[in-house]
């Protein structure tokens, strides 16, 4: 069986007036297996959307090749597009139509039934809002409708371009559950995001992209492991004497101010046990390395979402 996506050495340069050349995509290669949840993580302007648009077949690269489910996305072919589901950053809707009319129109384009359209509305929790005009839906509801339209054709491969951007935390969590269930049904999902915790929570593998290049690809856990960073354990100040802090740190780095003591340890189990026996657990916080640290490590730059 072919891979879901095979991308080799994509390049795309924009020549803007006055801005000179911008290498939006600069030699990008990656491979996504069937059934995978693949994330492309990077700050705004990293080239995520351009990469995705080339992969989907909306833009022609200057050079490089793309295979989706073993087929070329260029030129447009109904055989391939019928197997793809796409959610774009802008919620692309027909003006003045209700949510139901919207998804039924998309259903007809994919040759899917009205029942399937209704089922998708139900899946994204919009059955109650079926008769509301799209422009009157909230941002989160529009994104969910957009995803429902992407799923109505029963796709094997789903592209989601920053689906949770500009949503409140609750709406974001709801969408996470939806995206997990889409992937759990056996569909390959490709997600671009500039939220670290989103990539960490959802993706099997993450490509970290910056300045048009993919800097590294790994699973979130693999990234953190390979970073081999110490665990940061924080407790409120005033519970431990200076000597005791020295003893607990056991030669590893630590810092302290009026509010808190922060240990950086390779052996959090031992440290936490000792803190517990000291009864010094007020204000306890344990923070392991996360993708933010990975990004700093991989790109040499502070994360700026």
């Amino acid at each position: 069986m072919d891979a879901a996506i095979e991308v080799a050495d994509l390049r795309k340069t924009y020549r803007g007036r006055g801005t000179g050349e911008v290498r939006a995509v600069d030699g990008v290669s990656f491979r996504v297996e069937r059934g995978e949840f693949f994330g492309i993580l990077g700050p705004n302007g990293a080239g995520k959307t351009t990469t995705l648009e080339i992969v989907e077949g909306l833009r022609k690269p200057d050079s490089g090749t793309v295979r989706l489910l073993g087929l070329s996305p260029w030129p447009h072919s109904p055989e391939l597009t019928g197997r793809l589901g796409v959610q774009l950053q802008a919620s692309a809707f027909f003006e003045f139509l209700t949510a139901r009319e919207q998804i039924e129109t998309f259903a007809q384009l994919y040759g899917a039934s009205k029942a399937r359209a209704a089922e998708m509305l139900e899946l994204v929790g919009l059955t109650e809002h079926a008769n509301v005009r799209c422009e009157k839906l909230s941002g989160g509801q529009q994104q969910r409708l957009s995803i429902a339209c992407a799923l109505v054709g029963d796709p094997e491969l789903v592209f989601l371009d920053e689906p949770t951007a500009a949503l409140d935390p609750q709406a974001r969590r709801n969408l996470w559950d939806l995206m997990r269930s889409i992937n759990a049904e056996g569909r390959t999902v490709v997600l671009t995001t500039h939220y670290m915790e989103e990539a960490e929570a959802l993706c099997d593998r993450v490509a970290i992209m910056d300045a048009g290049k993919i800097r590294a690809v790994d699973s979130p856990a693999g990234f953190v492991r390979s970073l081999d960073a110490p665990t940061k354990v924080t407790v409120a100040a005033g519970q431990l004497s200076g000597e005791r802090v020295q003893a607990l740190a056991a030669g590893e780095p630590w810092t302290a101010d009026e509010a808190a003591v922060v240990f950086e340890t390779r052996d959090p189990r031992k440290l936490l046990t000792e803190l517990a026996s000291d009864g010094a657990l007020d204000g306890l916080a344990v923070r392991t390395a996360n993708l933010e640290d990975v990004f700093l490590h991989v790109t040499g730059r502070e994360w700026r979402a």
């Binding site: 989907e56 077949g57 909306l58 447009h76 109904p78 597009t81 019928g82 793809l84 796409v86 774009l88 950053q89 802008a90 919620s91 692309a92 809707f93 027909f94 003006e95 998309f106 384009l109 994919y110 040759g111 339209c149 054709g153």
Partner: peptide
């Protein structure tokens, strides 16, 4: 409108030409 809401772009990714 299409430049803003990307409807045509979205439709290019359906089986309809």
């Amino acid at each position: 409108d299409w430049k803003r809401d990307k409807l045509l772009r979205r439709l290019r990714l359906t089986p309809a030409s």
